Amino acid sequence: AKRAQTANAKTQVELAQYQYLLPRLTRMWTHLERQRGGIGMRGPGETQIETDRRIILDKISRLKAELESIDKQKSIQRKNRGKLTRIALVGYTNVGKSTLMNLLSKSDVFAENKLFATLDTTVRKVIIDNLPFLLTDTVGFIRKLPTHLVNSFKSTLDEVRDADILVHVVDISHPQFEEQIDIVNKTLAEICGKDSDKKMIVVFNKIDAFTYKPKDDDDLTPRTRENISLDELKATWMAKMNDDCVFISAKEQINIDELKNKIYEKAKEVHITRFPYNDFLFQKYDEGDDPGYSEPSTDK
């Protein structure tokens, strides 16, 4: 709530807070249960709970109405962006999405090593070589994300639903990074639908912070993530993802060119389908193969 800056983010966080608070009002007034009222010996704590519940329900309905108007504004903004390819950075919270956003778009999005540093959706136009596209930084996901929290951040998550390509950022230095991948995939299936055919690139970030402890030869205990080297993980995941993954460090700017090449190839496939007359921009001819090439004239 302290990091919410825009009206959109403040409304979303406030709605999530009230929806979280509503089913937990009962235990907040237990200190009034011993006080006795008048006829029927009905304690005043129950009356206070009913009053608070009515106030919170009124605020929730008001905040939902505000978010509906915000959703309409956001949808109009998305329509006005034209047919440009849209790429969204998704992933668990605190995996380095905003740092990567700043690196690719040369912007100044707030990025810090803490949970939910990003609450506002940021969209920037990025050009790699001769290909323009829109890059979106989204709010991070968490374990056991409640349904009402997904609904409260609907305007933010709509950017994910409308994206053509998803760049799934993973903190490979985290001990439970595979569990975080499953959580993000389940959340994406809930947002985009299980049958979504969106293109995806998995970016394993923070390889500079990756550490492991090699096992001794006489150690017969099962191997854990701490005993697997980075090279082994690379071979495993690249085979599993059909090379649609890359290992980088956004902080140290390691393998960023490889990531840009993968994004370029994916974005080019989408761009050509929407702008087929621009196909010649991506074709590279030798002088003899170029159909528009002719030998220079010797006439004066």
Rank of each mutant, 00 (worst) to 15 (best):
Q176N: 14
N113M: 12
D137T: 01
L131R: 03
D164M: 08
K234P: 02
V109I: 03
L230N: 14
S155T: 11
L21G: 04
I228A: 04
A239R: 09
N113A: 14
H168M: 02
P175Q: 09
A9I: 00
I87R: 13
E33Y: 12
P222K: 02
V126T: 07
S61L: 05
K10S: 06
F133M: 02
N242Y: 15
N113K: 10
F275Q: 05
M241P: 05
R143C: 05
N242G: 12
R53Q: 05
I228Y: 01
Y18A: 07
L134G: 03
K64F: 03
K260I: 11
D52F: 07
T51N: 13
L57F: 09
I142R: 00
D244N: 15
P23E: 02
D58N: 14
T30N: 15
S75A: 13
L89I: 02
Q176E: 06
F275D: 02
V150A: 13
E295T: 05
N205G: 03
A111H: 01
P175A: 13
L166Q: 05
A7W: 13
T26M: 11
A267T: 09
I60W: 04
T156S: 10
V270E: 15
P276C: 01
I207G: 02
R27E: 10
K83A: 14
R54S: 06
I256Q: 03
I256R: 02
E46Y: 14
P214M: 06
T236M: 11
S98L: 01
H148D: 07
V95L: 01
E190R: 11
N255E: 08
K74Q: 14
D299C: 13
R86N: 04
D219C: 06
E190W: 09
T221H: 07
S294F: 06
F177V: 09
L134E: 06
D299W: 14
K194Q: 12
Q73V: 04
E269W: 06
C245T: 02
S249T: 01
T85C: 08
G292Y: 15
R225T: 15
Q12Y: 02
H271E: 11
L67W: 04
N185Q: 08
L21H: 07
E287G: 08
M101Y: 02
T93F: 02
T11I: 03
F177G: 14
A163G: 04
L135H: 05
T118F: 00
T85H: 00
C245F: 01
A7Q: 14
A1G: 15
L220K: 14
F116Y: 05
S152L: 06
F204S: 03
P175D: 07
A163E: 06
F210M: 04
T298R: 11
I142L: 09
K300M: 13
Y285H: 10
T147A: 12
R86E: 03
R223L: 07
K194R: 10
P214N: 09
N113R: 07
P44H: 09
N255C: 00
